[in-house]
């Protein structure tokens, strides 16, 4: 059991977390955040292993990981 929480307002939509995720379960939202970026969002959260690769790659420290 693991989950990630993405702070959408901190996210700048750089997509680095998408490439870091070994399970390919992060994608970009169609919505805009207040800064005008498409924030990252998780899909298929049940597949998340809590490896935190997304979080350690995020340049804006916008992802928290729970296990």
């Amino acid at each position: 059991m693991a989950k990630i929480v993405i702070d959408e307002e901190r996210c700048k939509g750089c997509e680095l977390c998408l490439t870091a995720c070994p399970k390919h379960i992060i994608t970009m939202s169609d919505n805009f955040n207040k800064k005008g970026y498409h924030p990252a969002k998780q899909i298929n959260p049940e597949e998340c292993s809590g490896c935190a690769f997304c979080a350690i790659t995020c340049p804006d420290v916008a992802i928290e990981v729970f296990k």
Binding site: R10, G50, C58, P59, D60, V61, E64, V65, F66, K67
Partner: peptide, 27 residues
């Protein structure tokens, strides 16, 4: 569930001014 990764105390809450994808934030 327990938080295993979050914002370090030695960072403030101020959002970084760096461009999207810039590695400064990671450093």
């Amino acid at each position: 569930m327990k938080k295993v990764f979050g914002r370090p105390v030695s960072l403030t809450d101020v959002p970084f001014t760096y461009c999207p994808g810039c590695h400064h934030g990671i450093a």
